[in-house]
């Protein structure tokens, strides 16, 4: 397996930065509607995403992810979608589910688990595309 290139690692790190910012924006936009537990959970997820992004930058050329080039493209796509619209998401539970999905994806990437990345990414897409109740 080849290493992730510097450019790919930097782009991936960017994604975690934007996802984390989106989580914060979502939390601020819905502050009054969220319970204290939800706020704490989202806060922890947000800071975990920041840590993932920082770790990826430090790892930079050392990530071994040749099998997930396709996944990287999908991560870029979903990051853009979430970044553009999560702030205006009216369904709080969906926001919380998506946040958890992102957290799992991040953990799989840091663990360099190609299978885990694929399945968690699929789950995240399903959560994001799920119809609003």
């Amino acid at each position: 397996m080849a290493n992730l290139t510097s450019d790919q690692a930097i782009r991936l790190s960017d994604n975690f930065y934007y996802l984390s910012s989106s989580m914060l924006d979502f939390r601020v936009a819905n502050w009054e509607k969220l319970s204290d537990d939800d706020i704490k959970e989202l806060s922890d997820i947000q800071y975990s995403l920041l840590s993932f992004g920082e770790n990826i930058l430090a790892l930079s050329t050392t990530l071994i992810m040749d099998e997930v080039v396709d996944s990287l493209g999908k991560i870029n796509t979903i990051t853009q979608e979430i970044k553009d619209s999560i702030k205006d998401l009216k369904n709080i539970q969906k926001g919380l589910n998506v946040a958890t999905g992102i957290l799992i994806l991040g953990a799989m990437i840091i663990n360099r688990d190609p299978q885990g990345i694929g399945s968690s990414l699929k789950d995240l897409f399903e959560l994001w595309k799920a119809p609003l109740d």
Binding site: Y17, S20, L24, Y47, E54, L57, A58
Partner: peptide
């Protein structure tokens, strides 16, 4: 890019704390 990029995360963490 990488080391400077880390500082962007530091900024976001700071912003999160104060917001």
């Amino acid at each position: 890019t990488s080391l400077k990029g880390e500082l962007r995360f530091k900024r976001e963490r700071l912003y999160g704390y104060y917001i």
